[in-house]
């Protein structure tokens, strides 16, 4: 319904993503960088929504902002004196980084300009949730199960690590 406005919306989202990404990279304050992730993640969720991937858009918000970003914030805020560190991203080997960045830039640029893009004329907006669920439990069952096993082992591992620390600190107190 908003076909003619799509370039405008895309431009706005791209601008949001770009500005917040630049802010994340160039900000001298780690806290600001962490908070700027919000703009970047929301922008990507907006892009997903624009492409008709409604489920992915919401999950992007839920997982990246609700989970990952808040975890970052936790780590950043728990570190004492984090606001005093003003040295981030200042002197990380420019001699190596610059050529690498240039190579990446030109190869990506070459890729973008040489690829034949097929412009999809009409994006069919349809609910995707049911289809994703079906595929996860039929075609991609094995990867799905593998990921869940991985997550479970991570969970158990972190619990084991946390318990060990608890036991050690108790022994020290005694």
């Amino acid at each position: 319904m908003l076909d003619s406005l799509q370039p405008l919306v895309f431009g706005m989202l791209a601008l949001i993503i770009f500005i917040s990404a630049a802010f994340i990279t160039f900000s001298r304050n780690l806290i600001y960088s962490a908070f700027a992730l919000l703009g970047s993640f929301t922008g990507v969720a907006g892009l997903f929504a624009m492409l008709g991937a409604d489920f992915l858009a919401v999950v992007q918000l839920l997982v990246y902002i609700g989970g990952i970003m808040v975890l970052y914030l936790f780590a950043v805020l728990m570190t004492s004196g984090i606001g005093d560190v003003r040295l981030t991203n200042r002197s990380i080997a420019v001699k190596i980084a610059l050529p690498l960045a240039l190579v990446l830039f030109f190869s990506l640029g070459k890729l973008i300009f040489e690829t034949e893009w097929f412009a999809q004329q009409t994006v069919k907006i349809a609910p995707t949730t049911a289809a994703i669920g079906d595929l996860l439990l039929t075609k991609y069952l094995l990867p799905f199960e593998l990921v869940s096993v991985l997550l479970l082992s991570t969970l158990i591992g972190s619990v084991a690590l946390a318990r060990q620390e608890l036991r050690n600190s108790k022994e020290n107190h005694d």
Partner: peptide, 21 residues
């Protein structure tokens, strides 16, 4: 929205960021 209920929970995530901020 097709994902209305998920959307409701996702917006709560933005609130968390505001509170921490």
């Amino acid at each position: 929205l097709n994902v209305g209920i998920l959307y409701l929970f996702a917006t709560a995530a933005i609130t968390v960021v505001g509170l921490v901020m």
